[in-house]
Design a protein around this nucleic acid. Structure first.
Lengths: 152, 152
DNA sequence: ATATTTTAAGAAAATTATTCGGTTATGGTT
DNA sequence: AACCATAACCGAATAATTTTCTTAAAATAT
């Protein structure tokens, strides 16, 4: 399987707007509609494209209170880690969770409605998970840049 | 404009998979194809849906070295802030940038190929921006959860 | 209770995606 | 350089989907 410069450009376009028609893409890439179609199918089949999603506006649905939470575990025994990761994954306020290097073990991206909701989330959900040592919250004052597109 | 429970479910479905046909959605929502069509158009028009994008697999394109960078400015005069935000936004390794509360001013999500590329990014790009006081990098060991869908 | 507006439905039209058969490039082998 | 095998491409035909249109039913206001 060869992944060439045209595939690269195609992915760039699709990361920007996945609702473009194959005809539009065929003009940009100087290919036939069929060639574009088959390249897209190949990229989907081979796993280059994970999914197609709609990006919704946080403000509009009043879920625009974003907080990054650092979490440290008391111990790092494997079953503690597994349990924590499973628990945190199931929380729908947690959109992202990363195991990271540094002073803390994890970095979580949490999205809720407002500060009271955040308190509720911390008290009733996050800190009820076993083996959490400490947490540290960083509130997002403003989103300067937010893109889902990976540049080559 | 009313945003009801059906719209909510519709957004949930579209955040999961935006390539579903209106017919599939009409079955899930127990509506006609036209009703689904018009609701989607309304959500797009009113700004509930920002865009439709393809999510590409980082590993596949060998851009899966993810780093969160804290950045502190030397001063917070408005023109320093504006310049920094503009400069950082233009860097295509920086997918996300947040102005945050706490010890540091900004949190950046950086995606590159590997550690050498990261070093290159830090030395040649990030730290050449004016007025940066200090930085602190947290390397992602593993991505436990990564979703673009906001839950209601 | 009546008028007005919104929402929904089915059918028709327009556009788009997908399949198909044949052709042209590409890479490797002799 | 000629050969084969494979992959990529194209245009046309078909299938599926989106979009428009017309009308009917709810919901809301007068």
């Amino acid at each position: 399987m060869v992944f060439d410069a045209i595939d690269k450009r195609l992915l760039e376009y699709l990361q920007q707007d996945s609702k473009q028609t194959n005809k539009e893409l065929s003009l940009k890439l100087d290919l036939s509609v069929t060639a574009v179609y088959e390249r897209i199918k190949k990229l989907e089949r081979e796993g280059f494209i994970d999914s197609y999603v709609a990006i919704v506006n946080k403000e509009k649905i009043e879920k625009d209170f974003v907080v990054f939470c650092h979490v440290k575990l008391v111990q790092h025994a494997q079953d503690y880690v597994i349990k924590f990761e499973k628990a945190v994954t199931s929380l729908n306020e947690v959109l992202e969770c990363y195991h990271i290097s540094g002073d803390y073990d994890y970095l979580l991206k949490v999205i809720v409605r407002d500060m009271p909701s955040f308190r509720e989330f911390m008290v009733k959900k996050l800190t009820t998970i076993d083996h959490i040592g400490s947490t540290h919250s960083m509130f997002v004052i403003s989103e300067v840049k937010h893109s889902t597109a990976i540049n080559f």
